[in-house]
């Protein structure tokens, strides 16, 4: 009777089924825990944790230099860049666009820098559905190795004011 005070001695030993269940459940929880750690060493996808503070002005100038050095074209006013494999590449989040459009080579590793120039954004890479939170003032450094050629769509999945739904971008893997 959960709404009345329990009988005087309520701290009784567990029953057989309860003991079984608690043991199995606890084991299962620890198994899930070890899965995380195991994947850190086994898997190719892990939470990126490298980041440094940077002012939005600094980041913008870095990204502008990067675009100027590697620009190969333009689509609807958005520059297309083709950086050298293995280098640092820059992606800028701002209201309401991901810029520039990145052309990457398949199975090559890059250090992707992402930061916002205004409010928080959410980087969503589709259709592989990888999602990261992007801040202003933090230069997020992500080591990426695309493993399949094709067009990847970017959109924003963190509410960034009224034009949020207009914010898209693109990564092309060749």
């Amino acid at each position: 009777m959960a709404i009345y005070p329990p009988e005087r001695i309520w701290w009784k030993p567990l029953g057989r089924e309860e003991r079984l269940w608690v043991t199995v459940a606890a084991l299962w929880c620890f198994f899930m825990f070890f899965m995380l750690i195991g994947w850190y060493f086994l898997g190719a996808q892990n939470l990126p944790t490298r980041a440094q503070r940077i002012t939005t002005a600094q980041y913008k100038s870095l990204a502008d230099q990067f675009v100027e050095a590697n620009k190969v074209g333009e689509e609807n006013g958005v520059p297309i860049v083709h950086p050298q494999p293995g280098t640092d590449i820059y992606l800028v989040a701002k209201q309401w666009q991901w810029t520039p459009i990145l052309e990457l080579e398949n199975n090559k590793t890059y250090t992707l820098h992402v930061s916002s120039l205004d409010v928080q954004h959410g980087l969503s890479i589709q259709p592989i559905n990888l999602n990261l939170q992007i801040f202003p003032g933090y230069d997020y450094m992500i080591t990426i190795t695309p493993n399949k050629a094709g067009n990847y769509s970017l959109w924003c999945n963190e509410f960034c004011s009224i034009g949020h739904h207009l914010m898209t971008g693109k990564i092309v893997v060749k």
């Binding site: 995380l36 994947w39 850190y40 898997g43 996808q45 892990n46 939470l47 959410g122 969503s124 559905n129 990888l130 999602n131 990261l132 939170q133 999945n157 963190e158």
Partner: peptide, 10 residues
């Protein structure tokens, strides 16, 4: 941890 990559803010 890592599964959050697949789902964050979706």
């Amino acid at each position: 941890g890592q599964l959050s990559l697949l789902a964050h803010n979706t």
